[in-house]
Design a protein around this nucleic acid. Structure first.
Lengths: 213, 213
DNA sequence: GCACAACTGGAAAGACCTATCCACTTTGGT
DNA sequence: ACCAAAGTGGATAGGTCTTTCCAGTTGTGC
């Protein structure tokens, strides 16, 4: 299980890397809806080469963001290792929002779900577990307001994706304002005004599936 | 000045209305990047009819959202008429974010700027003035934190556009959570933690122009 | 240094979009 | 009722994108 099938010929492997590099760059710059043709052109390979190596756009996205998803998971583990529940939680939020700001494709990816992409979904699920622990711990310690719901993290990621997509290069630090405001509101303060009800987890899941077209 | 040029023939006027209705519906549902062809089909008119009446996509957007922009302006005036500065400000924020949630096209529109669309830009500018007054009044009254900047309103609109685009029909009230959190953080509370610096107005302007492609 | 499987890029098919053109139809004033 | 002007939709040109196919090229093991 998990074998790499046939090892690629040397020139094929070189082209694969070129494609991944081009895709990484294009996605980071412009988000996940860059065309396959554009990526092939940018990589300097024929369009057929791209499609043979990555038959669907999802396959390519999967390969491009494998390492970024690792970093995403690591961020959750690091946060859980922090002895201070609030530091852990808020540091985590800042870290993942920062990752979104650094890579528009990743920003899109975090708010989407591709039920067909197995490996990616598994990491998504693991990250979700760690995030839930982080939330529960912070709540138990009384740092995080009790009416906080883990859907709020997804909402913040979607909001942040919106800011990042809009401000792009023109105001690359605008997202920090958003996150700072939100973290303040998340903290358990003295007067925590009532919140509208949170969407159900199922509704948020549907929303993320919809985003994947 | 301001004349309607030649009054349209009756059948032409009917088609114009059909086009506007179709465009209004399509934009509300799917945002501003619905194709012209799709709108013509949906309106049941030939593609040529659409292009003759609205030579550019901007012309169409302009016509479709004229009344919505009026409502947008009215919201600011209503808010200024409220004797309570905080009520005025927070009601305004809720109102315009609600308008974004009700119409995805409008959500896109508010975070974009089309320097070429004269009428629309004029209203945009007037709304901006009213909003600035609203902010200044709330700050002077001590309801709004002193380090709030009017760029934060634009950031919130972009964030909200992100949430609305992502949650769509699946979680149509998710935006309310975002807005509630943000308003709490905007209020002048006892412990207002330091914020990262706000983007410059010029940077935000550039961001909005970029969004308009 | 040869042979063959692996790999290549370009061409092509099918969809879709914008924008323009033009032969035909409708409207409205007389 | 008539007929010019105003308006119509389909056809078309030229662009993009996805996906498949295939004749030619290039590594690699022997």
């Amino acid at each position: 299980m998990g074998a790499e099938d046939a090892p690629l010929r040397r020139d094929a492997e070189r082209n694969r890397e070129r494609i991944l590099a081009a895709a990484r760059e294009a996605y980071a710059e412009a988000g996940l809806d860059v065309s396959m043709a554009e990526i092939a052109r940018h990589a300097g390979v024929g369009i057929a080469t791209l499609f043979r190596r990555f038959p669907t756009r999802e396959d390519l996205i999967n390969a491009v963001f494998a390492d970024r998803m690792d970093a995403y998971l690591t961020a959750a583990d690091t946060a859980l290792a922090d002895p201070d529940p609030w530091n852990g939680f808020s540091g985590y939020i800042e870290a993942i929002c920062g990752m979104q700001a650094a890579d528009r494709g990743f920003a899109d990816l975090l708010t989407m779900t591709f039920p067909s992409a197995k490996a990616l979904e598994k990491q998504h699920a693991r990250a979700f577990d760690a995030m839930t622990q982080l939330v529960d711990r912070a709540k138990a310690a009384g740092c995080l307001r009790p009416d906080f719901s883990h859907q709020d993290v997804a909402i913040l990621l979607m909001a942040n994706a919106g800011v990042v997509a809009a401000t792009g290069h023109a105001a690359p630090d605008a997202w920090r304002r958003l996150v700072a405001y939100m973290l303040q509101a998340f903290a358990a303060g003295e007067p925590n005004p009532d919140l509208p009800p949170a969407p159900t987890p199922a509704a948020m899941y549907r929303a993320m599936v919809d985003l994947g077209r």
